[in-house]
């Protein structure tokens, strides 16, 4: 389930992710403002009917809001993921990732999906970074740790 504010101009294109995820399994909710997005996310997380709740957020999340989402996710046994602008993370978050697409000069494959995933906050473990790539043929994610300096 993807929650987002209705005002944005960019559209999610289901043909773009049909390789990774069947678009029939995605439900999209358009909310009016961020408070509503959070309320919907809390309800969806608590119900446990959806395995992953993704919300798009433009303003920093308060500690209370973050904690409420977390409790809801624990009740419903589901995962909540907030897409946040840089530097607006909530302190309540369990983990925080920075994902940047990366140019892959070596490969000859023209539909590279190489990304650099950086775990920049982890409450219950260490930080880390990986190069992640979707392998179209075997339909799996390949993760490689970057070389140590």
């Amino acid at each position: 389930m993807l929650l987002r504010e209705g005002r944005g101009i960019s559209q999610v294109n289901p043909n773009g992710f049909a390789d990774f995820l069947d678009p029939a399994r995605l439900t999209l909710c358009n909310s009016h403002d961020q408070a509503e997005t959070l309320a919907l996310a809390e309800e969806a997380l608590r119900s446990g009917a959806v395995s992953l709740v993704v919300m798009q957020i433009n303003r920093p999340l308060s500690l209370t809001a973050g904690r409420r989402l977390q409790l809801a996710a624990r009740d419903g046994n589901s995962i909540g993921l907030a897409i946040i602008p840089e530097g607006m993370g909530s302190n309540a978050a369990e983990t925080r990732w920075r994902c940047t697409p990366t140019f892959d000069p070596n490969t000859q494959v023209h539909d590279s999906t190489l990304q650099h995933w950086e775990l920049i906050k982890n409450k219950s473990g260490t930080l880390g970074a990986w190069y992640v790539q979707w392998d179209r043929a075997s339909r799996r994610v390949i993760m490689v740790s970057p070389p140590r300096k």
């Binding site: 289901p14 043909n15 439900t27 309800e43 119900s47 009917a49």
Partner: peptide, 30 residues
Amino acid sequence: KLDDLISRLGTRIGLENIQRFLPADSHIPE
């Protein structure tokens, strides 16, 4: 469970705002 969730969310934002993707037969990306 999902239907119940959608009904519940629908009371908040209206059932029209909860959508799904359906394929259409066109080469135009939009």
